[in-house]
């Protein structure tokens, strides 16, 4: 893939497999001739894309399509099985220790569940203040002030620094999670379903907060979500994943106005909208198949209305169909 000059993050043929190892009983059974085998989940399967500085990229897909795994690899929480991630032009694995630490600080993650992602036994001051002290962005004496500033930046009162997470509401906790990520002065945020657990009115506040922070701090986002209306609202580019692979990527307007891949079309048709009334819901053709045993050829072919013989055999390549638009579908060859 071509590297634009101002690429902030580049993901190249990234793959993550999870192998379910056999336990002792399984190994014995295997020795005795049973056909128990190690199972491999192809959570992320050869994914490549680029995020430019200052961009908001929305990553969309159904539960289990590998979007969180991808986000975690980018945030450095999970090691990839194969492929590479470059940050500002330097490959993760080729970085010196210092560069690696700098990149790890510059890429921060905001998690989905504001109830599970904060340590219930730590005060907010410690949750937000721990990392910046360790990394020398502030010291113990000035920590309270530093944390207070961070809290005000995300719209929380600085008088709450001594409180515990359980003393906050869901929306406030999500803000604490955001403040924690901002406290180490990141350049790139991976938001993994960061607003999925929030109420409508709180969701609006947090979306606005993300947009303000982007302007104030010049941040770049990878915004992982299954909520298309939120992604449409906030993103510059959208990446659609299905079963570990990217099926389509395009600028937001183009993708929503004229989806190319049949899966994108199907997704967009599913979006509940405020102006719809009395929908007759239809039984959707099948669930997302198990990544343990993905379909051959194009992963989407068992659910695709335009399926041909070729789709069941040959994996479609993600290729450019218009400037800035990529899609992986054999229909584009006709």
């Amino acid at each position: 893939m071509m590297t634009p000059q101002n690429a902030m993050l580049e993901v190249n043929d990234l793959t993550k497999n999870f192998v379910k190892r056999l336990d002792m009983a399984g190994k014995i059974a295997q020795r005795l001739g049973s056909n128990i085998r190690e199972e491999t989940v192809h959570a992320v399967d050869g994914v490549s894309f680029t995020i430019e500085k200052g961009q908001v990229v929305g990553l969309v897909g159904e539960s289990g399509c590998g979007k969180s795994t991808l986000g975690r690899m980018i945030a450095g929480i999970l090691p990839p099985t194969a492929g590479g991630i470059s940050f500002k032009g330097v490959e993760f694995t080729a970085m010196t220790q210092e560069e690696g630490e700098a990149a790890a600080l510059a890429i921060q993650m905001i998690f989905q569940d504001p109830f599970a992602s904060l340590n219930p036994r730590m005060r907010v001051e410690d949750i937000i203040g721990e990392a910046p002290v360790i990394h020398g962005m502030t010291d113990l004496k000035e920590r309270s002030d530093y944390v207070g500033d961070m809290m005000e930046r995300v719209g929380l009162g600085r008088e709450y620094v001594r409180r515990y997470p359980h003393q906050f509401s869901g929306g406030q906790r999500q803000r604490i999670g955001i403040a924690r990520a901002l406290a180490v002065q990141p350049e790139f945020l991976v938001c993994d379903e960061a607003i999925a657990a929030l109420d409508v009115s709180i969701q609006a506040q947090v979306i606005n907060l993300f947009m303000d922070l982007r302007e104030d701090l010049d941040l770049t986002y990878l915004f992982i979500s299954h909520d298309l209306s939120v992604v449409e609202h906030i993103s510059d580019r959208v990446v659609i994943m299905y079963l570990g692979r990217i099926v389509e990527t395009a600028p937001t307007d183009e993708l929503f106005d004229k989806p190319n891949h049949p899966y994108t079309t199907a997704l967009l048709n599913e979006v509940p909208r405020l102006d719809q009334r009395g929908i007759e819901y239809e039984p959707v053709s099948g669930e997302i198949p198990s990544p343990l045993d993905p379909p051959s050829g194009c992963h989407f072919h068992p659910r695709c209305p335009h399926v041909t013989d070729r789709c069941t055999i040959e994996v479609p390549v993600l290729r450019e169909i218009a400037p800035g638009r990529l899609s992986a579908c054999h229909l584009n060859d006709q």
Partner: peptide, 24 residues
């Protein structure tokens, strides 16, 4: 009115969403 105004949709792309001020 406030709730409906804060739902992101087709027409609000890239704009600020309406926020009901304050907290529950």
């Amino acid at each position: 009115v406030g709730l409906l105004g804060s739902v992101p949709g087709h027409n609000t792309r890239g704009e600020r969403l309406y926020q009901i001020p304050g907290m529950t």
